[in-house]
Design a protein around this nucleic acid. Sequence first.
DNA 1: TATGTGGCTTCCAGTCATGGGAAGGTCAAG
DNA 2: CTTGACCTTCCCATGACTGGAAGCCACATA
Lengths: 133, 133
Amino acid sequence: MNIGTIAAKSGVPAKTIRYYESIGLIPSASRRPNGYRDFDRDDLQTLRFIQHARGLGFAVKDVADLLALWREKKRASSDVKALALRHLESIDRKIAELGTMRRAVEHLVHRCHGDHRPECPILEDLAGDLDRA
Amino acid sequence: MNIGTIAAKSGVPAKTIRYYESIGLIPSASRRPNGYRDFDRDDLQTLRFIQHARGLGFAVKDVADLLALWREKKRASSDVKALALRHLESIDRKIAELGTMRRAVEHLVHRCHGDHRPECPILEDLAGDLDRA
DNA sequence: TATGTGGCTTCCAGTCATGGGAAGGTCAAG
DNA sequence: CTTGACCTTCCCATGACTGGAAGCCACATA
């Protein structure tokens, strides 16, 4: 299977597959006599695994750990769960941060008339009071 | 005012201030005979403005636009509001995306026993069914 | 057989918003 | 006079790719 084929089947762009190979996330694909990479069904399954994990927001480093766990038949599911829980917490932190921003921005937006006049509470708030802090 | 002083007063690290100067977000600071940058109260106000806007999640490019609007006395507040609304929408998109991830990850976490055994629904789900798609 | 098109290869650079650290000049205190 | 805390410029690294150049390879058509 050429890289373009496995890219289409896995949803991972060819460019990204080469990148994953270069950082060691996936093993180096075997080569045909003409130098082209040659992928098989195992590679496809690995790339789909990666694609799913990335889609859930796992960092590439975490995906590497998940792949190792996946291949390790003597793994403890607690290790997988711990990794996923850490990820869940990091998602929650990001959501909380965005929520704080969202409320602040929305508050500003609501106070701004949004017409042809220059007066704007958004800019006034951003400017703040020079003698305040 | 030396860069370290304005860094402390604005909350923007000295390193970042030099970077902002290099990309033209702030004007080039004047220099003392010894080559040190010399900042004044206007610079401090500008950096505080930037710091607030960045804290609300505005991209540096957007901050540049906000700064231009701030300095433009003949601005229309509708331009400021439009920019803020676009930002609000981008925040909402990110929150929605993270929310989707959160639900999926949480679902997996709940189904995983998390003990010494290797069976793990998280890995099974990530692996998917090779003959499915 | 020549030519075109598309796929494959490697390598370099850019993205975004910094942070780290090296090499070297400056300044105030002890 | 030497320390230590500043300041300067410069280049490299981050994360996770993406774009593009230069050049080979494969196959279909004229």
